[in-house]
Design a protein around this nucleic acid. Structure first.
Lengths: 180, 180, 180, 180
DNA sequence: AATGAATGAGATTTCATTCAT
DNA sequence: TATGAATGAAATCTCATTCAT
């Protein structure tokens, strides 16, 4: 059911898909859908939460595998995100694309956090390696918007760029690169 | 009618609004709606096109007012965009937010272009002031995603940041800042 | 639409009838039903309110036509109610039958009032013509239950009794007959 | 299962309750419900039949306990009915309230009989103690409607009256009181 | 006997669109 | 040109019922 929903949401958008069709594609009855999820938004949210968990775990693992250098950690985290989007394009689009807020206000909004990036930047700033005037929270937020927006644009047509180029460009534009 | 549509699209989202309601809010009859637009997506597209034109004109004007310095041009363009979003929050959200692609595949996708930024960056690169390895097209695209994503995040709750801080942060993270 | 609803509610009961069928029987589209009533319960309530108004007006008129004698007033009022039930059997059943409370708790419950009868009885009691121990409110309420229940039973199969016999029996059992 | 059904029918009405919920409340599986009853109407009918039997037995016992005086027999029977309604309000409402006819035409309609009352009245009439013109069958029927209707009204909100007052009022209005 | 996941017919309700005025 | 009552296709959701375990 999750797979069927993911496929259809990614292909047609949440609003253009109905519970009937999801159930049918999953090879199950209509009623079965409703015995598992209260409505299609609940299914969407479930997909989003799982995707988010998967992405965060990939990022965490990548950072752990990197050494202590913040630049290297950031590079690895970006590479992990790009790889994740590449491996799970449908899930990425459904989670961060225009469906993001479609999951009606039923519980906390699903979104990635810019917190870890902000923490890293603040540490560099306090060590005097980033300009004191930089608003690290805003910079972290802006970076996240860039990464998500760029990956979504890429997934619309993967021929637009290649994974390595994306990692390189996102890496160069990450605020950690301002450090010295 | 445009104003009514803008208001309702921004407040409830395109899918949650029907043509009936738009007409009613505009103080006109239902039939009148259909004598002006083929459907609500046509109205949405019209709003988006006008918004886009307004934003581009504001940017162009800002760049023209700036001197020849690329950095200054970029600063001014960003300031213009932030001001535009601040003055027309509903229009900005309806044009670039989750409604962006809701205007069904009926004509070219409405979106801002990263072309001007790419042109500026390429000139600097050819003048040797930007690393030869930088993919300027991708960088321009990434910057645009950042700007749009950050402004949308800001408009969700304007207390999250102030306009000057946004201009400063976006300015610092613009690829033109890598130049030397 | 009212006529169609009345017919179907009386014939099959409110729960066994759907809005679709009512609209179809009225020779109108499904959507038309919903542009007039929020749901079938709203239609039911409308029918009930109209019926109640009609019955009350018939009673009032009958009492006005009677002279000053309470017994005569009661007789006439009963005769008016029986005639009303005979002329509008479907409306009577839909209003006082098992649908009475089916009109979900949306506004005050539709019911006939025992107030007028209680007022009449109290006057007689204060004039010493009815036993001081009689609870006139309860007696009025009980009489109303009897009248309604008996008429509903009669309408289930009109051959069970004839109108004159009903008026006579209800008249004899009305608490006003205890007076001396 | 009977207790669960009684509780839910009384609280929400037969149409608003589903077999699933009844089984769940009874602490049993859905399938178990269907191995005992063909559908929820069968359960309803079972409850009604048991209630009816209980009420009739209480009445019979009360009459047997009274002496040979018809008035006393009637008083006792009424007192028994009021007590029964007071002790089993849910069962009384489910049996005689708006659910009465909900038990679809599957077998004879469940209802109390006015026969015993009619028999008593006819005997009095033949002894010349009741007016020859009185339609005793109709009077018995009317009394029953009054008793049932009044008790249902009382059970909707028991503060409306007290048991003794009800017995007294119903007793005074019983046709046997016309006897001389 | 007891269970409950699975089912799908059917009821409710919405809304884009038409068309007579 | 403006109107809005009328429409019905389509989406959402419920629940009686079955059947494999």
């Amino acid at each position: 059911m999750l797979a069927a929903g993911l496929h259809l949401f990614a292909r047609h958008g949440c609003e253009a898909v109905n519970s009937n069709r999801i159930a049918r594609r999953a090879g199950l009855g209509i009623g079965t859908f409703y015995s598992h999820f209260t409505d299609k938004y609940a299914l969407l949210r479930e997909i989003q939460l799982r995707t988010l968990a998967g992405l965060q775990s990939a990022r965490t693992k990548a950072v752990a595998d990197a050494g202590p250098d913040p630049r290297e950690q950031v590079r690895r985290a970006i590479a992990a995100a790009v790889r994740f989007a590449q491996l799970h394009p449908a899930a990425y689009r459904v989670t961060f694309g225009r469906e993001r807020l479609a999951a009606k206000p039923r519980g906390p909004v699903v979104s990635e956090s810019s917190r870890p990036t902000a923490v890293t930047l603040r540490a560099l700033q306090q060590a005097g390696r980033l300009p004191a005037e930089l608003d690290v929270d805003l910079a972290a937020r802006a970076y996240l918007a860039m990464e998500v927006g760029t990956l979504l644009w890429w997934l619309e047509d993967p021929r637009r760029a290649n994974a390595d180029g994306l990692v390189d460009t996102l890496g160069r534009m990450h605020p950690v690169e301002m450090s010295r």
